[in-house]
């Protein structure tokens, strides 16, 4: 590894096992702390600088490109089993900056900042001219589809009444005319069959999340709804630190909420920052 003594840092190869190990710790940290959207996987290490740290250790400054997977953020499925969202599904990339401390052989994330953005419509249509593009999350068809799908799911449920946590994806499909949505739900203290006023139903203190995929087909005089939800057995603990070390700290209060229906399905999230 070349040393850059005059610059104060060294620059290992982006594909060095050393760099990749640090990047993987960063990705694991990201997925352990992200509270909305989808898990992301490593796509490319853009830059790496390694700074000496006083009194001991080194700090890796990494720039990483990620890709959205199809696993919801709170899905306990290991990242290795999550599929990358393909270009035809309208892929979403993430640009991340990490600072990772290596001390006594232990890696600790000190800082993480990511910004996600969908592929351009032009690029998607280049690969797949008829593929549905991502719609705005506040698109009336998307909002309606989620509402109808959740009502359908609750009407068929023998268990808890589920409330919407987040709409994570929406696509308008031209043929057949329909709207495809993905959204997260959480169980309440109400039984689905007994609910008269959902406002009186509260999320359980020990959250039980689920993730739904639904399509609402437009028909003359009505609509057809197909909805399938996966309820997660174990409640993941968002923000639970896997890394150890006295300098590790995460301030979840700093974690922004999901993008509130912006002009694009774009989000940025600051996972934690403390040195």
């Amino acid at each position: 590894v070349p040393l850059a003594t005059d610059l104060g840092y060294r620059q290992p190869n982006c594909d060095d096992p050393e760099t990749e190990q640090v990047a993987q710790v960063a990705i694991d940290y990201l997925n352990s702390n992200v509270l909305w959207g989808y898990k992301h996987t490593l796509n490319q290490i853009d830059k790496v600088k390694v700074w000496p740290r006083r009194p001991m250790g080194e700090v890796y400054e990494l720039e990483i490109d990620t890709l959205e997977t199809t696993c919801y953020a709170l899905d306990p499925t290991p990242l290795a089993n999550c599929s990358v969202r393909q270009l035809a599904e309208h892929a979403v990339e993430g640009d991340c900056d990490f600072h990772v401390l290596k001390m006594n052989g232990q890696l600790t994330v000190l800082f993480a900042k990511c910004h996600s953005s969908p592929d351009s419509a032009e690029d998607v249509l280049k690969v797949c001219p008829n593929c549905p593009l991502l719609a705005l999350l506040n698109d009336t068809h998307v909002v309606h589809a989620v509402d109808v799908a959740l009502k359908t799911f609750n009407a068929q449920s023998n268990g808890s009444y589920y409330k919407l946590v987040e709409t994570s994806r929406g696509q308008r499909v031209l043929l057949p005319p329909s709207t495809y949505v993905e959204f997260a739900v959480a169980a309440t203290d109400c039984a689905a069959k007994d609910v008269t006023d959902p406002a009186n139903c509260n999320l359980l203190s020990e959250k039980q999340y689920g993730f739904c995929k639904a399509t609402v087909f437009e028909k003359v005089g009505g609509e057809d709804v197909e909805v399938a939800c996966t309820l997660f057995q174990a409640q993941p603990q968002p923000g639970a630190m896997k890394e150890a070390g006295p300098t590790t700290a995460v301030d979840l209060a700093e974690t922004p909420r999901p993008p509130v229906l912006g002009a694009q399905m774009v989000g940025a999230w600051l996972v934690g920052a403390k040195m």
Partner: peptide, 25 residues
């Protein structure tokens, strides 16, 4: 792969960015 060479210092050879694991968006 893009290969960057830093000149005018001892930073030397820095083969970054690394490989693309899936596809570029």
């Amino acid at each position: 792969h893009e290969v960057r060479v830093t000149v005018g210092g001892s930073a030397g050879f820095s083969p970054c960015p690394g490989r693309i694991r899936h596809f570029k968006v």
